Structures are given as structure tokens and as C-alpha cells.
Simulated scan of single mutants.
Amino acid sequence: MAILELTQKLLAAKKAKNISFDDLGNLLGRDRVWVAALIYGQASASPDEASKLVHALDLPEEIAEELTQFPLKGSLEPVIPTDPLIYRFYEIMQVYGMPLKAVIHEEFGDGIMSAIDFTVNVEKETDPQGNRVKIVMSGKFLPYKKW
């Protein structure tokens, strides 16, 4: 089963059961964004997590095995994304990438923010002029090694 096919099965079952990413996150003891990453083939589950997920979605147990495989990370094609929401993240990095890099280097030194030792949270901020999306990313700072 291809990753896309697996993702489609998982999303269809999630929709049929009317279960949210939050619900699945609570079931697995994980954040909803991590659960979404698992479903989209960008993370791997432990055997216990995979089993709990397929049982919650009433899917065959053999799907659990696929969820424990190491993923091929990075699902976007190497072109500018066309989905409007995903494109906005690309646009944000185009506009604020270098300023963020400069501020991080000024604060921490020469290095990167890990995407491995990393968490991301999505929050809804109520605003009278329209609700706002708040995304909080937290990654370990990794200084470049000198040798």
C-alpha cells in the first residue's frame, strides 16, 4: 500500500467515525499535530500506538504494521506549493526566513533549530475582527560544530 493510499484510508476512516485529531491524540497520548503527521506518513508509531489507532478507526490490524515503518519525510514536491494554506507558510518563510535566521543567530549564535527535537502546537485565538491561527514551534538549538 502506497503512503498516499494509506493516508486516504486513515482519513476516510477518521471521517466516517467522526473522530478529530484531538480525539486521536488523547487516545495515543500524543499531540494532534503529531497524529496528523503520522496519518500523512511523516511520523512512525510504536506498535502499541499503531494498534490503538487502527482499532479506534475500525481498520484491519495489518495497517498497524505500516504505521510503524520509518517514513520518507518531506511530502511536498520541490516546487512552490499551490495549496493556499501551505503556500502561506512558504510565503512566510520567503518574507520572514532571513529575519528569523538573523534574530536566532543574534540570540543563540551560529546554528539551527532542530526539526527532530521539535514540537509544534496550533491554537485558536478568538478575535472580534476574525479568529486567528497561532502556531508555536519549539526546536532544540543546535550550534554548528567547529573542527
Rank of each mutant, 00 (worst) to 15 (best):
A37M: 10
G139D: 10
L4R: 12
A12S: 10
D23P: 05
Y87H: 15
R32K: 14
T119M: 07
T126L: 15
L28P: 00
L28K: 04
V35A: 11
T82Y: 00
L100H: 05
N26P: 01
N131Y: 06
Q69W: 01
T68D: 00
E125L: 15
W147N: 07
I80P: 00
R32V: 07
L24M: 08
L57R: 03
V103H: 13
K73T: 00
L100C: 12
I63P: 01
G25N: 03
L24W: 12
Q69D: 07
D117M: 11
K145W: 14
V120D: 00
V35M: 15
E5R: 04
K101W: 10
P128S: 14
L53Y: 05
S20W: 06
I92V: 06
G109R: 00
D23H: 09
T68P: 01
E65F: 10
N121D: 13
F118Q: 03
K14A: 11
N131Q: 14
A12R: 14
E66V: 03
M93D: 15
E123Q: 12
P128W: 06
E65Q: 08
P60F: 03
G25Q: 02
I92N: 01
T7S: 13
V33Q: 11
K15A: 06
K14E: 10
A12T: 13
V35H: 13
E5H: 06
K14S: 09
L11W: 15
A43E: 15
G29F: 07
A16P: 04
E65H: 03
V120R: 02
N26W: 14
F21G: 02
V54W: 05
L38E: 01
A115C: 08
N131H: 10
E123V: 03
V79R: 14
L24C: 07
K17W: 08
E125N: 10
F70D: 14
G97R: 09
A13C: 12
T7I: 07
A13G: 04
S51C: 07
G74I: 07
W147P: 13
V133Q: 00
P71K: 09
Q94G: 12
G97I: 06
N121W: 06
K73G: 00
D83S: 11
A16G: 01
P78N: 09
K101C: 11
A16Q: 11
G97Q: 02
F89D: 12
A2M: 11
I104Q: 04
M98L: 12
